[in-house]
Amino acid sequence: MSLTGRADEPGKRSLRREFIAARNALASDDVRQAADALAERALSLPEVAGARTVAAYVSVGAEPGTLALLDALRARGVRVLLPVLLPDNDLDWGAYHGEESLARVRHGGRMTLSEPAAERLGPDAVTAADVVLLPGLAVDARGMRLGRGGGSYDRVLARLERAGARPALLVLLYDREVVARVPEEPHDRPVDAVVTPSGVRRFR
Rank of each mutant, 00 (worst) to 15 (best):
R145I: 02
A158Q: 07
T53C: 14
A118Y: 06
G122E: 12
A168F: 14
M144C: 06
G50I: 02
V194Y: 03
P87L: 09
E100R: 10
R142S: 07
A25Q: 08
V48P: 12
N89W: 14
P186K: 02
R79W: 04
A56Q: 03
P186R: 01
L102H: 01
P87G: 05
L133A: 14
L146E: 05
L160N: 11
T127I: 15
L172K: 14
R32H: 15
D188S: 06
T53Q: 11
D36M: 15
L81Y: 09
R145C: 00
D71Q: 05
A62G: 07
D188G: 02
D130S: 10
D90R: 08
V58L: 11
P183K: 02
A51L: 04
A95T: 13
S114F: 03
V191T: 05
V131W: 08
A75V: 02
G150S: 10
L69G: 07
P183V: 06
E99S: 14
T4F: 00
V48I: 12
T196N: 12
Y96K: 02
R23K: 08
D192M: 09
E18D: 13
V58G: 00
V139E: 03
A95I: 02
P64N: 06
L170H: 11
G143T: 05
A49H: 13
A117C: 10
V60W: 11
Y57L: 04
G94P: 06
A75T: 09
A21L: 04
A103Y: 07
A118L: 12
R79H: 10
V195M: 07
P183L: 11
T66S: 08
V171W: 12
T112E: 13
E99P: 03
A75R: 02
A51K: 14
R110W: 15
R201I: 01
D71I: 00
A168I: 10
H107G: 12
T112P: 04
R23S: 04
S28Y: 08
L3T: 08
D88I: 05
P167R: 09
A55C: 06
T112I: 04
V200P: 06
A117P: 11
L69R: 01
A118T: 13
D130R: 10
G164N: 02
Y174K: 12
V126F: 12
D71A: 13
D88F: 06
